[in-house]
Simulated assay, not measured.
Amino acid sequence: MSDNPNTIGGKSFTAVAINCASKAGEWIKSRIGQFAAPDLKFSKHDLVTEVDKGSERLIRNLVATHYPTHSFLGEEGVEPGPEASAQSIAKMGGSEYLWIVDPVDGTTNYVHGFPFYSVSIALAYRGEVIVGVIYDPSRDELFVAEKGKGAYVHGKRMQVSAEPALAQSLLATGFPAEHLSALPRNLKQTLALAPQVRNIRSSGSAALHMAYVAAGRLTGFWEVGLNAWDLAAGALMIAESGGIVTDQNGHPYSLGVRDIAASNGLIHDEFLKALADA
């Protein structure tokens, strides 16, 4: 193994992640309007297409070409539902090297032709995320983070926003596919936060929302019931851009976190209190 923790045999993990995300993104974009009707996964709000599955195969095969001994956790390889997701992280989270992939984050948007979806790829080393790449094919925007080396978009260093208070913040959230507990909790939080902030957006791709927090385009993001493949790459980006990512109780981010709160750091305590009060 190389002395550099971000390479094996001289091959950069980050370069491989970028190549995988770019190739998958190009293929996804080429398939717009040319796929069969989507299937339902966990609920009518949780869709999957042949494009999701094809994108994941493409990424898995590319990763295996470079790192055949690495573990791989892709969204489409896990049974639907929160219990299966939690079990997959518990089982694989301790792998030495684990690639964590959402092959199309924002499938519902993709199906409807709404151009806000992404490819999210993270690499964790013994449970700690060391590389994160999020690619937006619609805008040809590539967000890249490497632990200890910063986060970048268009080759420029990203920095979280400077809003000092919740009242000045632009936040984002989503609407969970799990309707018994996650969706009602998220809706309560949305109702409570809306009067306290500048505005709230919900655009349908958690990974891109996280990238936008890192880039300073959003002040913060929260959602209930997400998974490692939604969050891992973006969590590293926000941390490397000067922000804070925790669970909604304020504990530091780890691969098992499902209820996320991410911000520029300046509003974080106020943000967590507002979520708790909701």
Results as ranks from 00 to 15, higher is better:
residue 11 K to Q: 12
residue 13 F to I: 13
residue 15 A to P: 05
residue 20 C to Y: 01
residue 21 A to L: 04
residue 22 S to F: 09
residue 24 A to H: 10
residue 25 G to T: 07
residue 27 W to D: 08
residue 27 W to G: 04
residue 31 R to V: 02
residue 36 A to G: 10
residue 47 L to R: 09
residue 47 L to V: 06
residue 53 K to P: 06
residue 56 E to C: 03
residue 61 N to W: 01
residue 62 L to T: 09
residue 67 Y to M: 03
residue 76 E to C: 09
residue 78 V to T: 14
residue 78 V to Y: 11
residue 86 A to E: 11
residue 88 S to F: 01
residue 91 K to I: 09
residue 92 M to A: 15
residue 93 G to Q: 14
residue 101 V to Q: 01
residue 101 V to C: 09
residue 114 F to S: 06
residue 115 P to Y: 10
residue 121 I to W: 09
residue 134 I to C: 08
residue 139 R to G: 11
residue 140 D to A: 14
residue 140 D to C: 10
residue 144 V to W: 02
residue 145 A to R: 05
residue 146 E to A: 01
residue 147 K to D: 12
residue 149 K to S: 08
residue 151 A to K: 07
residue 154 H to N: 14
residue 156 K to V: 15
residue 157 R to L: 14
residue 159 Q to F: 13
residue 161 S to Y: 00
residue 166 L to A: 03
residue 171 L to W: 00
residue 172 A to L: 01
residue 177 A to N: 01
residue 178 E to R: 04
residue 179 H to Y: 08
residue 191 L to A: 12
residue 192 A to R: 10
residue 206 A to R: 01
residue 206 A to Y: 00
residue 207 A to N: 02
residue 208 L to G: 10
residue 208 L to T: 06
residue 215 A to W: 00
residue 215 A to K: 00
residue 215 A to V: 08
residue 216 G to N: 10
residue 217 R to P: 00
residue 222 W to D: 01
residue 223 E to D: 08
residue 225 G to S: 03
residue 225 G to N: 07
residue 225 G to Q: 04
residue 230 D to L: 00
residue 230 D to M: 10
residue 234 G to Y: 00
residue 235 A to D: 13
residue 253 Y to S: 08
residue 258 R to H: 13
residue 259 D to L: 09
residue 259 D to C: 05
residue 276 A to P: 06
residue 278 A to G: 10
